[in-house]
Design a protein around this nucleic acid. Sequence first.
DNA 1: TGCTTCATGTAATAAGTTACATGATTGC
DNA 2: GCAATCATGTAACTTATTACATGAAGCA
Lengths: 186, 186
Amino acid sequence: MPLSLVYLSDRVNGVPRPAAQTELAVLGALSLAPMSGYRLRQEILATLGHFWTESFGQIYPTLGRLTEEGLVGRDDAGRYAITAAGLARLRALLLTEPEHAPPRDGVLLRLFFGRQIGRQACLDLIAATEREVTLRLAALAGIRGTLDPDDPDERYALLTLSAGEHRGRATLAWIAETRALLEAWD
Amino acid sequence: MPLSLVYLSDRVNGVPRPAAQTELAVLGALSLAPMSGYRLRQEILATLGHFWTESFGQIYPTLGRLTEEGLVGRDDAGRYAITAAGLARLRALLLTEPEHAPPRDGVLLRLFFGRQIGRQACLDLIAATEREVTLRLAALAGIRGTLDPDDPDERYALLTLSAGEHRGRATLAWIAETRALLEAWD
DNA sequence: TGCTTCATGTAATAAGTTACATGATTGC
DNA sequence: GCAATCATGTAACTTATTACATGAAGCA
């Protein structure tokens, strides 16, 4: 008979449960401006999209929980708005240790076993990846143009944008190197 | 009344369901050598670890399903071994379109709302990230030393290893840039 | 009037981790 | 003999997506 049937859902070794990450994203977005749940999802997609995602199925239940806890309310226009308690909670969440999303890269998984499908299929695979990354970099360049380096909030957005650009360029460099290697084989 | 109550679990728009990705990892690992489920997990952790994860809770049920379908059997020593049908299935899976793991980067999420916690907390955050990435790069360097560029299987492993190195170095470059920016503010 | 977008929400389903149970094998 | 590792598996639980339902608001 197990002594403890408790599932440690709230926190394990100081690392917040993933649900807290959704709360963090929602509270964070509401700290910038009050908005509807629908808008919230659009904003998260547009501004955090290159490193974060949330679906309606997560956002609405989270808004419900946050409202119950008094961390979020509604303003005159009916939009969700963060409360003082919510702002305090946000700051606390921001200081928790970031979770490590278990890595799952479908492209690398396929390339690792690439011998089974041969050189050409691998070249096709990285060519498709190259197209995607190029599109993503173009999208990031578009966003960069809209951000003001002197705005106190947008300065931080620029830092995360830069991370996406560095990673995208690194992927392109790796693709070029990998293509050259693959073409030299056989 | 909805006309269709079917949940498209197997395939959506040609993209395989994520469960197929676990089958891919398991069949792929078994294509290199027969082994136990326990060993399978160790090998996946050691060799795919920097871009893929699987837990026991996934591996054993998957091995069970694959065995039922005749894609996997047991050899004389009792180890799981891939069958001819399994190899065909592996090749088919390798040609499916890679899934896009929804991005969830806890570090960037915190940095994006960094204004709430201030410059110093952000510097601490990226310093911790820098330590982790440095360790990961050192681990990759160790693995690189064990791989033979002329072995037909390990050549592909080297390609994926290189991806990890490029991304790691890009993250370090971004951290250096970000630190300089943060220290110049205020 | 009818189309599109905005808006809120739920139910079914999937995917995955963690903790636990249980036993065999191996090395000392 | 005993501890550590190897090995297999399951139950509970969490998180998340997707499809669907439903209706209001804005505008041709």
